[in-house]
Amino acid sequence: MLKLKNVDWKKGGIFAAGVLFGTAGIKALSSDDAKKLYTNCTAAVLRAKTCVMKTAATIQENAEDIYAEAQQINEEREAAAEAAMVADAEAAEVAAETAEETEA
């Protein structure tokens, strides 16, 4: 037979309170008011997602524009460098021809 002196009533009370709280919690979480709260929270998250996606699309478009402009700048610089090299080469040829003519 179970002796009442060895029973820990505190632990039993805590267990019973936990069961009661869990049962009440399940009822509260499945109520119509809770469902309305869940629906409104979900709607807010979806609105936030839409806002974030629009912002991300804008940032991506701006990044693409920046990248295209940077490529254009580099192409223009390369073209200018090539033109400068051609001009230097032509000037060197002219200088060489002038030097040959003066020697002759």
Rank of each mutant, 00 (worst) to 15 (best):
E64F: 02
Q60N: 08
E69L: 07
L46E: 12
E78P: 00
A63K: 03
E103Y: 02
T50D: 08
G18Y: 00
K11Y: 01
T23Q: 13
E103S: 09
L37N: 10
L46H: 06
E64V: 06
N62Q: 14
N40Q: 10
E103K: 14
A34Q: 10
T50V: 10
K3F: 02
L2C: 04
V94E: 12
G18T: 02
A56S: 09
V7S: 04
N40W: 04
L29K: 13
T39H: 07
I59R: 10
K10T: 09
W9R: 13
E76H: 06
A104H: 09
C51V: 09
D33M: 04
D8R: 11
G22K: 07
M53N: 12
L37V: 13
A89T: 11
L4G: 05
A68H: 06
Y67F: 03
G12P: 01
A79L: 11
T23I: 15
A28W: 06
T102Q: 13
A68S: 11
A104F: 08
A87W: 03
C51K: 15
A57R: 13
Q72A: 12
D65P: 06
L37R: 14
K10I: 02
E61I: 06
K10G: 01
I14V: 08
A81M: 09
G18L: 09
W9I: 12
D8N: 15
W9V: 10
E82W: 01
T58L: 13
Q71G: 00
F21N: 08
E82H: 05
K27T: 08
E82G: 00
L20S: 13
N74E: 11
D88P: 00
A89N: 09
A28M: 12
Q71I: 11
A92R: 15
K36P: 05
A104N: 15
I59H: 03
G12K: 13
E90K: 08
K11E: 08
I59N: 10
A57C: 02
A87P: 04
V94S: 05
C41G: 05
C41T: 10
E82Y: 01
K27F: 08
Y67D: 12
